[in-house]
């Protein structure tokens, strides 16, 4: 795989190009454009030049077998890789109207994380009250006005379909919630500051089917307001909730297309093999 590091790379993945010419039938605005993104963990290249659009207020799913680089790609979007030494980016993730390249060395990772919200695989609420959990992102952004904070906490919890379950116990520790509620709390926490992008890294893999169904339902309503990028190892989940799907393998973006097309009539045979369960 490291050979491809030195190989001349086309600006765009051919398969991505192909589908991107097909997609704009609906003329959906692009919220972010990934261009020839490469990423290294030390000497190991985990992404070999990924290019794909992230359409505004749509759910885009990234699928692929374990170790394909799907989480790595997602984590580039909020520069969480920067916490670990030896990580290196090359290429672009351009937020469309703002014109900010998220992986530019000159852009502070903290600025990126102020723009982009993320929810992790395991629900990880802070050891604080439910209210303080959702308000944490607001405090970081200097929003301290009590009325405003309370309003936005309620709004975010409502968006995350959690308000009715917790409105009477906002001051209780977040750990008293069930796993599914904790994950929705984490979604509310990410939503409260009104992020430009919401990143979800296998958000339901630690949850039972009922909690999973709730979160999937929630994404349907959320996408009216926010652009969602989700990594999932669950193919049927990707098929259920996303409008666009990217299939990755060994650090390459194999195919990017409308979900329906990718699952029913993929352009690349490897995609076909994966979505029909022949490998992965």
């Amino acid at each position: 795989m490291s050979d491809s590091m030195n190989a001349p790379h086309p600006i765009r993945d051919t398969s991505g190009d192909q589908t991107m010419t097909q997609a704009p039938a609906t003329e959906t605005p692009v919220r972010a454009q990934v261009r020839d993104l490469k990423f290294w963990y030390g000497k190991f290249q985990a992404l070999n030049g990924v290019s794909m659009p992230i359409y505004d207020r749509k759910v885009t799913a990234i699928i692929g077998p374990s170790g394909c680089g799907k989480s790595t790609l997602l984590r580039c979007f909020n520069r969480i890789h920067d916490l670990y030494p030896g990580s290196r980016y090359n290429g672009e993730i351009n937020l469309a109207p703002e014109g900010v390249n998220l992986v530019d060395k000159g852009i502070d990772p903290i600025l990126v994380r102020l723009l982009v919200g993320m929810v992790f695989q395991k629900p990880n609420p802070f050891p604080k009250s439910i209210f303080e959990n959702v308000a944490a992102g607001l405090y970081v952004r200097g929003i301290r006005n009590r009325t405003e904070v309370e309003g936005r906490v309620e709004e975010a919890l409502t968006q995350a379909a959690l308000w009715n379950e917790v409105k009477d116990r906002l001051s209780k520790p977040a750990f008293e919630l069930s796993g599914g509620q904790q994950q929705r709390l984490c979604i509310a926490r990410a939503l409260a500051p009104k992020p430009k992008l919401l990143l979800l890294d296998e958000p339901t893999s630690a949850l039972d089917p009922i909690a999973t169904a709730k979160i999937e339902e929630l994404m349907d309503s959320l996408v009216k307001d926010v652009t969602i990028l989700i990594v999932t190892h669950n193919l049927s989940q990707a098929a259920r909730i996303s409008k666009y799907t990217a299939f990755m393998h060994m650090g390459d973006l194999i195919e990017f297309a409308e979900t329906e097309q990718l699952f029913t009539n993929p352009a690349v045979s490897r995609t076909q093999d994966y979505v029909t369960g022949r490998f992965g």
């Binding site: 990772p109 903290i110 919200g117 990880n124 970081v140 500051p193």
Partner: peptide, 25 residues
């Protein structure tokens, strides 16, 4: 747990905030 650290950075905290508000407690 690294999850706590990552989610604190994830909401946009700087290092000082992560250390004093999340790691230290």
């Amino acid at each position: 747990p690294s999850g706590l650290r990552e989610s604190a950075y994830g909401i946009g905290c700087n290092r000082w905030q992560v250390v004093w508000q999340y790691v230290l407690p």
